[in-house]
Every structure is written in C-alpha cells, then in structure tokens.
C-alpha cells in the first residue's frame, strides 16, 4: 500500500513529507510505548501513535520508518515537524482513534507484512 493510500483511508491531514507519498509499504505498527517499538518492530515502515514528543520521531528514525500517523487528531510540535523533515519522515494526523485507524488499514490490505 502506498503512503498516499494510508492518508486516504484514514482521511488524514498531511503535515510534512510529500516526498514519501508514492512509496510502498507492507506493514505498520500501532503503539504509544516507544520501547516496545524499539524491541519488536521489524520492517514496519509506518507508526501509528497517540504519543506526541520528539522521541517519537527519533524512534521512527532509528527503526528506518518513513511515516508516522498521529491518531485522535493529535498534532506534532514545530520541533517535531522540523526533526521529521530533516529525517525525511512523513507526518500526518487523523481524527480516527488508534483501534479504528489500525482496523481500517488492516481491512484495506495493509497486513502483517506478507507480500502476496
């Protein structure tokens, strides 16, 4: 699924990072606990989270993720937007809650990373 489709499915507002919109991703991860993301994520290029601080961007950067979706209409700070822009990470914000956002993406075909 392309990042652009993720934005459409979640009716999300693009905050920064048009450059990745046509990149293809095969899986995502939903978590507010960055330690868990660092422990268990492998090859998930998209992070859905309700957590808003600079370490969300750094965690995504460490994990080579290319897109962060903030759920429940959360908005990143200017510092975070700057960090993301430097790192080439797309940020978007959706009104959906975490459970619904993950479910919508899963239903739309963004599964566990198994390429059919």
């Amino acid at each position: 699924m392309r990042i652009r489709q993720i934005q459409e499915v979640l009716e999300a507002e693009l905050i920064v990072g048009e450059g990745t919109l046509d990149k293809d991703v095969h899986s995502a991860c939903g978590s507010d606990m960055m330690s868990d993301v660092l422990a268990y994520v492998k090859d998930q290029a998209v992070l859905l989270t309700g957590l808003v601080n600079a370490q969300v961007i750094r965690t995504a950067q460490m994990m080579d993720m290319i897109c962060i979706v903030f759920v429940r209409s959360k908005q990143p700070t200017e510092d975070m937007i700057e960090l993301a822009a430097e790192a080439g990470i797309t940020l978007m914000s959706t009104e959906k809650r975490m459970y619904e956002a993950c479910g919508l993406l899963y239903t739309a075909g963004l599964g566990n990373g198994v390429i059919a």
Partner: peptide, 15 residues
Amino acid sequence: SLGFGAGMGLPNMKR
C-alpha cells in the same frame, strides 16, 4: 508518559 520506562532499555541493548 513519554513512551519509555517500561523496563525494556537494557534488554533491548543486549538484544
């Protein structure tokens, strides 16, 4: 509340 402090730091470093 900042997303850390779950007791995963040192185990992750070892992992």
